[in-house]
Each structure stands twice: as structure tokens, then as C-alpha cells.
């Protein structure tokens, strides 16, 4: 079977495009870094691809709010293409700035469970961290095992870096928020690593730095009602290998590297990307 084609957007200040493309390739995807304007101008079409990734970065310098100007470009220029992409059952991931972009285009959290296709209405936001600072620090994440999210199947808890200044998830309407919770769209939360895996998730805001930004209900990432569109502030691609984990010199080194795969050196972040590739293959 041919490897699923993955479009990894870049341009205008997106800057995690290289590693995001690399991790898809490590799990059997066929990733192409592709400039946003290729889709805007129409000389390439989203339809060519089976997975879309909006990587992290500082699109347009995050001026006027993170992800906003890139979100606008996509909302105005790629509206039909994005709608068709989701309607065709193809997965989309937004990481960090990409998550911010998906929230501001309205793709996340998206409309209700009974009308799941995109309507491009913004319902939530990601705003300045309570600390007022951009920070790069490692956090512990736990996933809702009942989430419809196709990206997070079988993942319970991982360590990841966050690298953002505007990662505080806010959703003013608690009714909407509760609806997302009921539908298990609150896919991933910041948790206290001292809790038992599987028991870390809580709606009570955790103190800094366990929650690095003061997100409502400790939200680190959410999915839409279809489970296809997923976004998160932390960077799973940044822990594709164990040697990128800050504790790796504190552990006994695992076995040797396989010649064509990471083997025992695979990091906790890679499974998410493998899930999407396998999902696409399973639907063929």
C-alpha cells in the first residue's frame, strides 16, 4: 500500500514544519512540506493529501493574537477545501501555533455532535498564559480514553514540552464546555505527574507549572465532534525519540537503534502520528 500523503503547511512564520514532516515519515507517512500559498493560489489542492498538519511556530509573529492572521488566510481562502477535507473523513492536526490556527478558524472545537462538519465559527480561544511569559518547559499530559479522537487512541500519559506564550484555553460558555466534555472532546489535559496514570484528569485548575498557562479545566488539547480534527498546545513531535527527553541521561540507556527505525529509542510522542497514518490506511 502506498504511504498516506501528508501535507505539512509552512510559510509566514510556521517553524516546526521540518520535524513535523519528519515524524510522519518515521511512522510510514509520505509527508511534504508545502507552502500555504500553494493552496491559496490553487496550483496545489488539499484534495491531493490524506492528512493535513498545521505545525507550530509564530505565524505572522502572533501579532493580533496567536494564529489569528494565519487562521484568517485559511478561513477566507481555504474554506471550501477544508470543509471538503473533513467531510471526506481525513484527519487534521494542529500543534501549538497550529492548534491556535484551528481554534481561530473555528475548526476546533467545531459545531455540535449532531452537526459535526465545519462551520468556521470561533467558539473558544487560546490567550496569553497567566504567567505573562513565553516558556519552554516539560509537562505531563493525560488523555481521555473515551475521546473520539483518532489521533490519541491507546495513549494514556506522556511527557511533552510546551513552548508558548499564548496557550491558555478559554471557552466562556460553560454550556458549550460541558457539551464538549460530555462528548469526550476534551481530549488531553495537563496533569500532576504524581497522580496515578489514568487518574490524573481534573477540571480543577492545577497550579503553575503543572498547568503551564492557567487553561480552563487544564485543557492542553481538544478534538472536534468527528474525532478527525485534533489540536494541542504541547509538542508531541518534539519527543519522537527518547534522547530528546530531559531525563534520558538519568536512565539506563535502552538497546541499540534499529537500522531503519528507532526501536527501543522511540519516544512517547510518535504514537500520535502513527495512529493517524494507520487510521488512513484502515479506511482505504
Amino acid at each position: 500500500m502506498t504511504a498516506p500523503k501528508v501535507a505539512v503547511l509552512f510559510g509566514f512564520g510556521i517553524n516546526c514544519d521540518h520535524e513535523t514532516a519528519a515524524v510522519f515519515n518515521l511512522v510510514g507517512g509520505d509527508a511534504e512540506r508545502i507552502h500555504v500559498n500553494h493552496f491559496v493560489s490553487g496550483n496545489r489542492v488539499l484534495e491531493e493529501f490524506e492528512i493535513l498538519a498545521v505545525p507550530g511556530g509564530f505565524s505572522f509573529g502572533d501579532h493580533l493574537g496567536s494564529g489569528r492572521l494565519m487562521g484568517n488566510r485559511m478561513r477566507f481562502a481555504l474554506r471550501e477545501q477544508l470543509h471538503a477535507f473533513v467531510a471526506a473523513g481525513k484527519p487534521i492536526i494542529g500543534i501549538c501555533n497550529g492548534f491556535q490556527v484551528l481554534v481561530k478558524t473555528g475548526l476546533l472545537p467545531g459545531p455540535s455532535a449532531d452537526q459535526p462538519l465545519p462551520d468556521f465559527v470561533q467558539r473558544a480561544s487560546l490567550t496569553l498564559n497567566d504567567s505573562g511569559r513565553y516558556e519552554d518547559r516539560w509537562v505531563t499530559l493525560e488523555f481521555d480514553e473515551h475521546s473520539p479522537c483518532i489521533w490519541t487512541k491507546g495513549i494514556q500519559r506522556i511527557d511533552c514540552p510546551v513552548r508558548h506564550g499564548e496557550g491558555k484555553f478559554v471557552m466562556p460558555s460553560s454550556t458549550d464546555f460541558d457539551a464538549l466534555a460530555a462528548n469526550h472532546q476534551l481530549t488531553v489535559r495537563y496533569v500532576d505527574p504524581a497522580t496515578k496514570p489514568g487518574q490524573g484528569i481534573s477540571d480543577q485548575p492545577l497550579p503553575f507549572p503543572l498547568s503551564p498557562n492557567g487553561s480552563m479545566r487544564n485543557i492542553a488539547g481538544i478534538c472536534d465532534a468527528t474525532g478527525l480534527v485534533f489540536g494541542l498546545m504541547p509538542h508531541p513531535e518534539a519527543v519522537y525519540a527518547k534522547w530528546l527527553h530531559p531525563d534520558h541521561t538519568r536512565k539506563t540507556a535502552p538497546g541499540p537503534l534499529d537500522s531503519d527505525a528507532l526501536g527501543e529509542w522511540e519516544g512517547e510522542g510518535l504514537q500520535m502520528f502513527r495512529n493517524a497514518v494507520e487510521y488512513v490506511l484502515s479506511k482505504r
Binding site: 516546526c16 521540518h18 519528519a22 519552554d136 518547559r137 509538542h235 513531535e237 519522537y240 534522547w243 530528546l244
Partner: peptide
Amino acid sequence: RQYDHEVIAQTAV
């Protein structure tokens, strides 16, 4: 900590 020290997913120390 306010610098991104691991973008590009390559920083091992």
C-alpha cells in the same frame, strides 16, 4: 526558559 531551546526537535541536552 523563555527561550525556545528545542524547536526543530533535536536538542538532546
